[in-house]
Design a protein around this nucleic acid. Structure first.
Lengths: 181, 181
DNA sequence: ATATACTTTCAGAAATTACTGAAACTTCAG
DNA sequence: CTGAAGTTTCAGTAATTTCTGAAAGTATAT
């Protein structure tokens, strides 16, 4: 597995971005490589192509598998494990969103719920709770929304995407529609 | 400025989350503190409350100001600068989304555009480009969407949020509406 | 001008996070 | 059962990121 310059530039870039998207550099590179390669790759091929240690590849693949972004493949008559990116790009985006929601919102939401159950002890806490309530409501809304979006069929998702700058219009439409019925 | 246990637990948690949300721990703590405090705080008060260095506070405030999440305040007859969280919670979420979009999607989008302008040199690159095209389209859609959402008025935003699990229904409605007109 | 009260900068220390590679483990064919 | 071919783990090291604090900078009142 040797990468053409085009593929290499993408793989390296994806590695850099990886850290911003919630996985580390090498995991990002590994995933990028598997996405652009049509045929499955063995762990050794990955390590070689990316020039990283075999152990690191093993851990990275484990992580990608736990996120269901990558699938193991067995080639008959070969003892090696082969790996391939799983699902459509939209699936992968979904997975990333889901992971991030779990790590970035759920813990905060649960802390906020706890705090909001307490009685405010003074004026300062009273004000604080009112702000926390706002944050809580917002996070809960975003969570619900993203769960809803995930449940949407790919076709509906595509329709929603295509709506693009028409979201506002649809809201208006909804009002009209409700009134007229 | 001494924090009650309730406030402290939120501030500390927000600090931990901060790193996941794109700013570092102390910046997260500082912002959390300013959000729950009704009256503006001076840089020294912040440093003292959070037990971090004065220099760090200065850098953090600079960052928060550059994101327009925090506003400087001058109290007449006092030479100190005072700081206060700016805008509604929704504004702040918007800022965070915008920042992240800039850091997490724009660079990738621009790289992908460049790569997709090149002619594929072989079958391997042909396949790679088809996957990259998918990623490109998805990112472009998400970008457009989020820009659209940002442009929406707070009221429409609220309406959209309240829609919650009704997104699917609105899509159906849109079809019906289009047909009937 | 100078003292004072405050803010900012930045080199280096500390803390965190990621990576390596050798050793332990697993699996399977003969 | 043994050894070959493969995988995983994890202690130690490397790289990166964050934080400190002392020094330099700025503004104002007198």
């Amino acid at each position: 597995m040797n990468m053409t310059p085009m593929i290499e530039s993408f793989v390296m870039h994806f590695g850099e971005m990886g850290s911003r998207w919630g996985f580390n550099r090498t995991v990002g590179q590994m995933y990028a490589l598997l996405v652009v390669c049509e045929e499955p790759l063995s762990a050794n091929e990955i390590a070689e192509a990316l020039n990283i240690s075999r152990g690191n590849v093993s851990m990275g693949l484990k992580e990608l598998q736990s996120w269901r972004l990558v699938q193991m493949h067995h080639v008959p008559g070969d003892r090696k494990d082969y790996f391939k990116a799983l699902g459509s790009i939209w699936d992968m985006a979904n997975k990333v969103f889901e992971q991030r929601r779990k790590r970035e919102m759920d813990p905060t939401l649960s802390l906020l719920r706890d705090i909001l159950l307490d009685k405010p002890a003074n004026e300062q806490e009273k004000y604080a709770q009112s702000r926390l309530q706002e944050i809580h409501d917002l996070l809960e809304n975003i969570t619900q929304w993203s769960e809803e979006l995930q449940r949407l069929s790919p076709e509906k998702m595509a329709a929603l995407m295509k709506l693009g700058s028409g979201v506002g219009k649809v809201l208006d439409m909804k009002d009209k529609f409700l009134k007229s019925s």
